[in-house]
Structures are given as structure tokens and as C-alpha cells.
Write a protein that binds this DNA or RNA. Structure first.
Lengths: 334, 334
DNA sequence: TTGTAAAATGAATACGTAACCATTTGATGG
DNA sequence: CCATCAAATGGTTACGTATTCATTTTACAA
């Protein structure tokens, strides 16, 4: 592998000058610059980013710990994060973390000495948070937050849960099921609380058999759906804790010949790009902002990295309804 | 940042011993090992991967140059690639490359001295291919291939194009449009050739006004669709060069109140995961294998990296029809 | 006890770059 | 022609690790 020393020898200058040609070309005279550039091209020299990282203590690399891509929310955010970071000159190391391999994922992220970490996989009560703060390396969580209430970008999850329940209630639904994720995750926890609040405000009875706070794997959601269909008095609507879950449930419904929304209304939360598609048209609650949470988070993270100020980011985006085609009035059905 | 020297000093041993504790613990006596481990934990030391890369000339990092995630094909493959690579102990640098910023993307990929490169964005006639070969760094292309016909994993694109046209023809369609990507890309080129061959074999006339080989951005596909709807004698079916395009076209059709498949049959190629969804049920042609191209490519790449043999990978997966709900017989319509 | 080999540890070095400080070259004005 | 100062370049070192080679310690047989 050809190094800057080789270039220096080939051009008849010092390694220092080669370095200057690449980093501060203004400090080097035109003829020497040309000489060095010629050597660089002839040897097709490429600087070694690792060596540079070592001496500069700056890696130009960001570590992204995302949820799995079969969840369309992470499709949108991963895309936004990587594109923005690349534009700003950062490389992005990506890991798709499932909750089993959390600690392992953190370990690999840490030993790479990245400039910043952006993660969605944190739990409310995650001990990793204190470690991250100790390490004095900029980080931000998106979508989820830690109980410490620091360095996060989220939507107003409580309000989102509330609005989605309210929407179904105002359409006349009385028996509404909830299918969400684990309550150890702030996102689902707050959405669920919003849901409960709405049910309470509108004086609708709650029964445990309609409530599923489960692992969000495909199988588990499908299993929850089957439980629901087995019930004596089936709910007429389901509040899903996320668009990803809503899409899963709709798929399950179709497989059971249950027509959405005629037989069953389903509403999601997140307003993922996919939900706009003509074949989907998912009714959902999402951020009023055009920019997704990934974009907001990565732009904040890069600010933190470049300003060297460890100020604390706390962003909660307001939400609104997106009324599409997977929910309808209960009267029509009866 | 705490280094192995700090640990050594704290534990009262040499830096060499610290290194041994982490890499060849069998060579160090139990009591010293314990002493060092204690120091490592107390100082919460994390080895610096960049320094290690520098001395070992091995980065444990792979560079992925993927197409954009709004194309569901790249959702499936990116997911498979990253998960497999992580399992095998490799970090993955991801870039979503659009064709405008190709060279820029390559540059950043190269200066990172990665162990291998996996890319989908190569053109048939891409000068980068020779550069890659020169660099003596393992690489593989997936989905697309270079004219040199080396180091690729693809599906049988010609056959895929042929089968998709044949399917529509056998359903009775006479006027069939083609909407594909640029012919500078092997994938679209071969699919298009397959399409032409089928049209020829079945003696169907071809007219330029039904053929669109265009940039695959959303706007351009929508524009192609609008051109099609403006035609005096509208085609009754569209062969899309990829599922991504098919989904785009279906969305456009719905927006124009054209019913798929009653008014217009649309078939894709790739059989992406999303096409299975109950709301989508896209008729398509895809690999007969369970594993997607990303998985095949990354596993081959890691073999190349670890065997240090620069053997040449040429994999073309056979394809078959997946008959779902976006195509139907022409008779019904008339 | 002594000799000898094996086991355990340490000292020195290389990896490729940027940064710091020292030196040489060139230009300007008196 | 010289003094002065800026511009241009070079020599040396540090970054944090693994590796190579040298040294010390230990174990065991004679």
C-alpha cells in the first residue's frame, strides 16, 4: 500500500510537504504542488483515514444503532440519517440492533472511537445511558428516550396515542383493542398512556383482553391478532402502537378475510412514507413536520460534534392526524 | 482517552502484556491476567480500533455502496448484508449512492482502507471496475454487473424480462408497455432484452411510444406513466423493470383512478419482501432462492476476504414467476 | 545445587499521518 | 549589498496498538 512517504520520495520532497498539499495547499508553492500532485496520481496514492484518525483524534465517522429495516419507520430514518451525514462529510457505521444483542452492539460501536453516536434502541431504564454520558462522546437518541430525559428527538407520543384513540372513538367505535410494543420502551409506553387517557376521558370501558403490549416481531404481532379474532366480542377497531404494527395487522386481517376498514378499522402511529402509497393509505398520526426524526436527530448530533459544546437536546415534535382509508365510521358496518 | 499504556502503568505491567491479555490470554499467567483485567475495568479501557487497523493492516470494516432505500429491493439487501456482516464481526460503512455522486462515493469508500467493498451501483461500462481490480481489495457487485463479467451476483435478468413479458402475453395482452431504467445498467439492459425477445417470439408488434428506459427517480417514472395515459391507444399492461418501478406505477394509476389490474395489468421484477404484503400482492418475477442477492454477495465477499484467495465469483440465480394480484386476463376487461 | 528448557514478561519498533518546531529560500526596502 | 522578515520546506515526534526479539522467571531433571 502506497503511503505519503512513498509519494514524498517519488516527488523529491518531504512527507510533511505531501501532507500540506492535501490539507493546506495554500502554504505550498505552485511548482512543488504540481510535482506532488503528479506523484500522487502516478502512484494513485490514497491517504489512510485510520492513521489520520489516530493523530487527529477525529474519525469523521458516526455510529448508527437503528431498529430493523422491516419496520418502515427505520427505512425512512436510516435513509435520512446516512444521506445527511454523508453530505456533511461523515461516514456512518450502521448496526441493526435487535433487543437481544444490545450490549454486543454497544461494544462494537464503542471500540471504533467514533465522533458521535445516534441510536434508537435505548430503553427507558437503560444502564448504557450513563456509560454514554461518561464517555464524553456526543450522542443522541431518536424515537425513544431514556428516563433521564436528555439528548432525544421524539414525537409527542402521548398525544399521538391520545389522538389515535380519539379518532376511533369519534368514529363511533366502542370496543377498541390496543396492540403496542414493550412498555420498557418510552415510545410505546407514552403512546399507550395517551391511549388509556383517551379511553378514560371518553368513559369507554377497558378490558385486559383487548390490550397487547408485546414484543414487536412479526410472529408476536400475528399472534396478538389471532388472539383478538378469537375473542367472543371482537373489537371493531385496533389502535396500533406504530405504523409497522398496523401494516402487520392489516396483512394478518387480509389473510383471515377480514376486510379493513369495513370489518375492522386499524390506525397506526408514525406516518411513515410507505403509508402514503395508494395501495396502503394507512390512517395514522404523525409529526406535523416535513423532516423525519432521523433527520432532526442527525443534524442536532452534527451540531454537537462540531460546536464541541455538550448542550442538551430535548425535542418533542407536535403531531396531527392523517386521515386516510383504513378506518371508518362504525354505523356503516352495522 | 485511556490507552493500553495507561492500563499498563495502572496494573504495573508492560503495554505488551496488556495487549497479550486481550489477544492471546493463554500466554499470560493467571494472577497477572487478573491484575490487568482489574485495571481495564477500573479505567474502563476500550481498545482503539484505528490504531489496531494501522498496525495489522486489517480493518474489520466493509464498505457498502447501495442504491436508495425508497427502492424496497435495497431495503431487503441492505438489511441482509449488514446483519450478516455484523454477525461475522465486520462493521459496515453504508452509502446510498445516486448516480450523480458516484465518483465522490467511491473516493470516500477508498480512503477508509476497508477489508472489502460490496456495491450495487456499478455501470456496465464503469471505469471504476479496473480501479477496483488494481487496488487488490476484495469486492463484489450485486444486482448489477460490469461488462467484464467478473465478481457479481445477480438474478437471470434476461430470463426475468422474458418471463414477465410472456406472462402478460399469455394473459392475452397485445399492447404492452415497458418502463425500465437506464440501459447503461446491466440489470435493466438485460431485462429489457428479455422483454424484447419475448415480444419477438410471440410476434407482437413493438412501438417506441410504449418503451420507456428512463432514470428511475419517482418523478421520472410518474412522468413516464403520464405519457402512457396520454397515448391514443393505451396499453393494457405494463412490464416494469423492477418491483420498485411497478409500485411507483401502481401508485400513479390509483391517483388517476385507473384500477389495477382491471383497467391495467402491471408486473414487476425482483419479488421484494414488500410485494408479499396483503395490500400489495404484486405479480412479479424473482429468484427461486430464499436468500436475497445481498446475502449471497456478502457471504461470498467475506469468503474472499478470509480465504485471501482472489477467486472470481460469477453467480446468476435462476428465476420464476410469482403470480399474485396485479395482473389479469385481458378478456375480462373487454 | 546446578543446568536447561519452557514459560512469562518486557523493551523497542513499525504502521501512516498531522503537528510542531527548525531551517532554508526568497523578497523587500534602505 | 545587506538586513529583515515572510514564505516555503524539512526534520522529528506523537497518536495507540501489535509484533518481534530479548530478557527474566519458573519448573524440573540430573
Amino acid at each position: 500500500m502506497v503511503s505519503s512517504k512513498d509519494v514524498a520520495k517519488h516527488a523529491g520532497v518531504s512527507q510533511t510537504t505531501v501532507s500540506r498539499v492535501l490539507n493546506t495547499p495554500d502554504l505550498v508553492k505552485k511548482p512543488t504542488l504540481d510535482k506532488v500532485m503528479k506523484a500522487i496520481n502516478e502512484l494513485s496514492y490514497i491517504p489512510n483515514a485510520h492513521a489520520r484518525s489516530l493523530v487527529q483524534n477525529k474519525t469523521n465517522t458516526i455510529s448508527l444503532l437503528s431498529g430493523p429495516l422491516h419496520n418502515p419507520f427505520f427505512v425512512d430514518t436510516t435513509s435520512a440519517i446516512i444521506n445527511y451525514a454523508n453530505e456533511r462529510g461523515y461516514r456512518v457505521n450502521v448496526q441493526y440492533v435487535n433487543d437481544h444483542k444490545l450490549t454486543e452492539a454497544y461494544a462494537t460501536a464503542f471500540e471504533n472511537r467514533v465522533d458521535g453516536i445516534i441510536l434508537s434502541c435505548i430503553l427507558i431504564d437503560d444502564p448504557i445511558f450513563d456509560k454514554l454520558k461518561q464517555m464524553d462522546i456526543p450522542f443522541i437518541t431518536y424515537n425513544r428516550k431514556h428516563k433521564n430525559n436528555e439528548n432525544f428527538v421524539e414525537i409527542d407520543n402521548f398525544e399521538a396515542g391520545y389522538l389515535s384513540a380519539k379518532h376511533l372513538i369519534e368514529l363511533g367505535h366502542k370496543t377498541i383493542a390496543w396492540v403496542g410494543g414493550p412498555l420498557t420502551v418510552s415510545t410505546y409506553n407514552n403512546r399507550y398512556c395517551g391511549f388509556l387517557q383517551a379511553m378514560n376521558d371518553y368513559k369507554l370501558p377497558l378490558s385486559e383482553q383487548y390490550i397487547f403490549n408485546t414484543d414487536t416481531s412479526k410472529q408476536n404481532i400475528t399472534h396478538a391478532f389471532q388472539q383478538i379474532t378469537k375473542l367472543g366480542s371482537r373489537p371493531t377497531a385496533i389502535c396500533a402502537g406504530a405504523d409497522s404494527l398496523a401494516l402487520n395487522l392489516i396483512d394478518d386481517a387480509i389473510r383471515e378475510n377480514i376486510i379493513v376498514p369495513d370489518d375492522l378499522s386499524i390506525i397506526g402511529i408514525d406516518n411513515v412514507d410507505l403509508s402514503h402509497h395508494g395501495l396502503i393509505q394507512l390512517t395514522t398520526v404523525g409529526s406535523i413536520s416535513e423532516q423525519n426524526l432521523g433527520y432532526l436527530a442527525i443534524s442536532e448530533l452534527i451540531k454537537m460534534i462540531e460546536n464541541k459544546k455538550n448542550y442538551c437536546v430535548k425535542i418533542t415534535e407536535p403531531v396531527k392526524m392523517f386521515n386516510r382509508r383504513t378506518t371508518r365510521k362504525i354505523e356503516i358496518r352495522q
